[in-house]
Design a binder for these strands. Structure first.
Lengths: 234, 234
DNA sequence: ACACTAATCCAAGGATGATTGGAGGATGAC
DNA sequence: GTCATCCTCCAATCATCCTTGGATTAGTGT
């Protein structure tokens, strides 16, 4: 078989994709871009990177065609180059979560669920019991039974949100509580399975005596499921 | 926000997965393991690696919990640690194929389709026209209309195959042609979208005047689709 | 033309990863 | 027990990657 060379070349092609993903900061950039386009400066700030370093990482991602760019005057907006990249990223998250117990622990610690000491088998009064399934939310929202609350920053809401959702970023939530009907049940959501905003929002709402729960996962998984998405400002 | 440290740790967890995938040889090992368990020696041989090197790569994969081991006497069998790993790998292939034109070119060259010179837009008499969809194959096989032919090595057939399929590895095909009914239509399959065996098999069958086509993709995608799989020797 | 901003390019260093050869563990045959 | 086999572990070399600072390019406004 003279196909060793061709075979190797093929796997090296695959590896250009995986190598582009093989860095924590680049994964963080992809996580951000999964919520909508951003400039280099915004990305650097959000991912705690120097401008030069962020630009470098973005060049690597661009080289692997995982992101694309759009020029607007003096700025350059980066965005994910297709839903399959988001799906690949979600797949990575899923594998990490299922295979690495350290990921579960890190996730609990970051989200503020469980105790984070490691024996995370099943906290009885866990926030998991307050998760709402996607199809269920869609049905109940259409029936007007619940208020859907998007607690991500306004920009991300504008780039794509659940139809009918109200946009109140977590930062503004405590001051704008009165915009939410007193008696309604509230379902909050944010970026995805590893986003802390909705967890914080539900904790805050409960503390204020509201009935609130959380959509399972978040926008990333909602979109990948092919469920309806609307874009445009609030 | 004091969550920068926690956030970074979370993404570093994700990165342990992607770093384990960030190497052409390791991807090749995963490709092999997606067809069933193998020993270190078999893997080294198949992937054109030294034993030491292969073992090292496998340790990396094991460290990320992407593969698991089983000891049998003096040998150690490696296998993928769950279908989600196979799904992740398939997702990588998909992204590479959709985003990198070089991957398309490398694929055509390896599979022996198209001309491989780069302008691979659409070869008229392309092998694509002879692809059979998965559900269609299942229905026609159950109705006895087609003979399903597995042209992978016997070991891989034993580890999992399409119910009712006949096992004739490509190497043995030309000598064992008489085992296939003269008049039947034959549908060949092998490992996956990047496996050359079924392509070669169909070319050989056509040359011998048989009616033959190829299942779209292969065993990997069949399994991930949740379609029925049987295991055990022929 | 000039100043200003956003982003990329380049070079240097320190860190991390891949391969190889040789030593060492575990298991099975005798 | 000894030997052979299969695999892992260790150490050294070489290549690759990440970060940082300074210089450069592209675009905007005056």
């Amino acid at each position: 078989m003279g196909d060793r060379r061709l075979k190797t070349e093929l796997f090296e092609q695959f590896a250009t994709v995986t190598k582009a993903l093989a860095n924590a900061k680049r994964l963080e950039l992809i996580d951000l871009l999964a919520q909508g386009e951003r400039t280099v400066e915004q990305l650097a700030e959000a991912a705690d990177l120097g401008i030069t370093s962020a630009s470098g990482h973005l060049q690597v991602l661009k080289g692997a065609r995982l992101v694309s760019t759009r020029r607007a005057g003096t700025r350059i907006f980066y965005s994910l180059d297709g839903e399959d990249v988001a799906a690949l990223y979600a797949s990575v998250q899923q594998v990490a979560r299922a295979h690495l117990s350290a990921t579960q622990a890190a996730r609990s610690a970051y989200l503020g669920t469980g105790d984070g000491t490691g024996h995370s088998d099943a906290s009885p009064a866990d926030a998991a019991s307050e998760e709402v399934a996607r199809e269920e939310l869609l049905a109940r929202a259409r029936a007007g039974e619940v208020v859907v609350l998007d607690v991500r920053p306004h920009v991300e809401f504008g780039a794509g949100h659940i139809p009918g959702a109200v946009s109140i970023p977590l930062e503004e939530l405590s001051e704008r509580l009165d915009e939410l009907p007193d008696d309604a049940e509230i379902v909050a959501y944010c970026r995805g399975a590893y986003c802390v905003l909705a967890y914080d929002a539900v904790r805050l709402l409960h503390a204020r005596g509201r009935r609130a729960s959380r959509l399972v996962d978040g926008m990333l998984e909602w979109r990948l499921q092919g469920l309806p998405v609307r874009s445009g400002a609030a």
